[in-house]
């Protein structure tokens, strides 16, 4: 009798264990699937345009364009992904990037007109740091509003988006500012073994955020916050500190994106990248980020960025308009979501 109970108990435990292994495995496939899906889509898009327009599409100029245009969007998309992972969203991230770029450009111009161009150019590093500080400060404001005051992320960042963007309009007078440290422009044109330096910035950011999310306790706290805020609070995780850290990091990423803006083009304005906010949401979701929080991979988002850039430049190589690209974007996004729904019906949301 006792034996049988023990046996049943053991079986039950074994069953539970097996089920855990199974769910774990399924979960892994699930994450891998969206990364795999993106990789397949990227390869397919690349192959299609290579076959259709090999001369133009495979030209080194076209590949350079992809590698130069992808970083700023990729960094912003990773920032968006981190906020979505925590169950939120950041509509202000593009205006944060512009705030960083505008601060650097204005300070540079002020210094060079008062103390000479040489001094201003020699201050490239401190100016970049200044831009990053602006990004961190703006992100911290978001964090305070969300974590301390308790405003919903989408509303808090909708408000700060208007506030930051409005202040940028005031400061710039609605004009485009010209001028950036020479070092930044050099950065924008430097290549290592044919790979643009600013593309390497994207790689570094992606690796850093990947390590943060998969290896460091803060990353797990961000993930738990998005997966189940209540449960994570009951396990003793302070959601205030997690959210504050999340949005501050996202502010830093916005600041970095602003530096990339300036290295590509030595000009800054409040209106730059007006369509980026919605674009980076599209990319984050395409890259397998669950918009309800709790699930996302950096690799998926980077692949999605590259995929959309390949499609964009492929459309250009095919002489299709940016409007047709916008249509393709919508179809890809909704198609991917519908496919996800049809495959995983009821299993996960």
């Amino acid at each position: 009798m006792m034996n049988r109970i023990a046996e049943a108990d053991g079986m039950r435990r074994g069953g539970a264990e097996r089920r855990d292994v199974l769910t774990d495995f399924v979960r892994k496939i699930h994450v891998n699937r969206s990364v795999g899906q993106m990789a397949a889509l990227l390869v397919a898009a690349f192959a299609i345009f290579t076959i259709l327009r090999p001369a133009v599409f495979l030209g080194s100029y076209n590949l350079q364009v992809i590698a130069l245009a992808a970083p700023e969007i990729g960094i912003l998309a990773i920032a968006m992904m981190v906020t979505m992972l925590s169950g939120g969203i950041d509509l202000s991230v593009v205006s944060i990037a512009n705030a960083s770029a505008i601060t650097i450009s204005m300070t540079y111009t002020a210094v060079s007109s008062r103390a000479g161009v040489e001094l201003a150019n020699s201050l490239a590093l401190p100016l970049v740091l200044l831009g990053l500080v602006v990004g961190v400060a703006a992100g911290a404001i978001n964090g305070l509003l969300i974590a301390k005051v308790g405003i919903t992320p989408i509303l808090a960042t909708l408000g700060t988006m208007q506030l930051f963007n409005g202040l940028e309009l005031v400061v710039t007078g609605g004009r485009t500012l010209y001028g950036a440290p020479a070092g930044l422009s050099t950065l924008g044109t430097t290549t290592f073994l044919g790979v643009p330096a600013i593309f390497l910035i994207l790689v570094v950011v992606a690796v850093a955020i990947g390590v943060l999310l998969d290896r460091i306790s803060l990353g797990f706290r961000i993930r738990y916050q998005g997966a189940n805020a209540e449960a994570s609070r009951f396990s003793g995780i302070s959601s205030t500190r997690t959210l504050l850290a999340t949005y501050t990091i996202v502010g830093l990423l916005g600041g970095i994106a602003g530096v990339v803006f300036l290295s590509r083009n030595p000009s800054a304005s409040a209106d730059y990248g007006a369509s980026y906010t919605l674009l980076v949401i599209v990319i984050a979701v395409l890259g397998g980020t669950n918009p309800y929080g709790g699930r996302a991979t950096v690799l998926g988002v980077v692949l999605a960025t590259l995929c959309l850039q390949v499609v964009a430049s492929g459309f250009t190589a095919m002489r299709l308009s940016s409007q047709q690209y916008a249509m393709a974007q919508g179809v890809i996004l909704i198609g991917a979501m519908v496919l996800d729904y049809l495959r995983g019906r009821g299993s996960s949301r």
Binding site: L278, I281, V282, V285, P291, Y292, S321, Q323, Q324, Y325, A326, M327, A328, Q329, G330, V331, L333, I334, M337, V338, Y341
Partner: peptide, 27 residues
């Protein structure tokens, strides 16, 4: 239909259709 039938997040669906509608009109 996309929102009710496939239960997709409304923000994501309308983001996609917004791009599609504008592009389709110009094209």
């Amino acid at each position: 239909i996309l929102i009710a039938r496939f239960r997709l997040p409304t923000l994501i669906v309308t983001l996609g259709t917004a791009g599609f509608f504008r592009g389709a009109m110009i094209t």
